[in-house]
């Protein structure tokens, strides 16, 4: 298979999965909640100090989310068609230093998802402000990392980060005069790993985002974050190891394929973990009923 055909296939997968298939799943998940757990029966789910008709706002937001993702998907398909018809060869992406566009398109793709995450976070923030819970409960069992992910995966993430660092230093070497430029990526990648680890730790020990959430659901939510962050760390290290050594194996032209594949994989794994670990059917929605006591 030529590099061009491989890139078209992988990039098409990135466009369809991130901007069509996964948003469709998110929308159907939210529509299922809106239709199965309406505001009059589950008022605590919609408690919000900002909006008059919160359920209508969610429906409208889902509509905008669908349209924006559709536009981005069409834009991605347009890019592919333009590339195929204009004679621009994907095997020249690296040579033309156009890698930034693959990354830029990915950032464009995840922008609506990030906005949705921020809005959800704010929604829970408003719920916490309103929720008056005179009786608060807690479990006297400590939450440990091993409750949320098998420790060998964490060990693998740490090992791969260490392996990447060792391989990077072995390849680049210590050159004080170029240290700033060469080691900037080490700083960025290290900070990214710390961010993922810190976020997981915050979820394990931190406050519940949703004040009404049942304990079992809280545990599942933590599991989702911990697993996504660990798998992202593993994938990031693997990608960096591959990316740093493409020239050693004469695979430099494949870098755009690897980047697109890595970005798609990270999102795919995240969505799979979310939908497998935190199935909507398993969520206890009874806590959102008007007469429900905190769990």
């Amino acid at each position: 298979m030529s590099i061009d055909l491989l890139f078209y296939t992988v990039f098409l997968g990135q466009v369809l999965l991130i901007s069509y298939f996964f948003p469709k799943k998110t929308i159907s998940r939210n529509q299922f909640i809106l239709n199965t757990y309406p505001m009059d029966e589950y008022p605590k789910l919609y408690q919000n100090s900002i909006f008059v008709n919160p359920d209508q706002i969610v429906r409208k937001a889902m509509g905008v989310y669908r349209v924006v993702n559709g536009i981005i998907a069409l834009f991605g398909l347009g890019l592919l068609i333009l590339m195929a018809t204009s004679g621009y060869k994907p095997n020249m992406i690296k040579a033309n230093e156009d890698m930034v566009f693959v990354m830029f398109f990915f950032l464009l793709q995840i922008a609506p998802h990030m906005v949705l995450e921020v809005l959800t976070y704010k929604w829970y923030g408003n719920m916490r402000k309103i929720a008056v819970l005179p009786t608060r409960t807690a479990d006297l069992t400590p939450r440990r990392l091993s409750d949320f992910i098998p420790l060998p995966f964490v060990a693998l993430a740490v090992f791969l980060y260490g392996a990447w660092l060792v391989l990077f230093v072995a390849k680049v070497g210590f050159q004080p005069e170029h240290a700033a430029s060469k080691y900037a990526s080490v700083l960025v990648i290290t900070l990214s790993h710390f961010f993922l680890a810190g976020m997981a730790a915050k979820y394990i020990r931190g406050k519940k985002h949703d004040p009404h959430q049942a304990r079992t659901d809280q545990m599942r939510s933590i599991k989702v974050v911990v697993q996504i962050n660990t798998f992202s760390s593993i994938l990031m290290s693997l990608f960096m190891i591959v990316n740093d050594h493409t020239s050693d194996f004469n695979l430099t032209q494949y870098e755009p394929v690897f980047l697109s594949l890595f970005l798609t994989l990270i999102i795919t794994v995240s969505v799979l973990v979310l939908h497998q670990t935190n199935k909507i059917e398993d969520v206890d929605f009874s806590v959102y009923k008007a007469d429900a006591a905190g769990k």
């Binding site: 608060r136 479990d139 006297l140």
Partner: peptide, 20 residues
Amino acid sequence: SLAPGAALPSIRQLANDLQL
């Protein structure tokens, strides 16, 4: 229900869970 030797949550975890 809490046996001798059983582990207890950290101060931070318990404070966060109880919003204290």
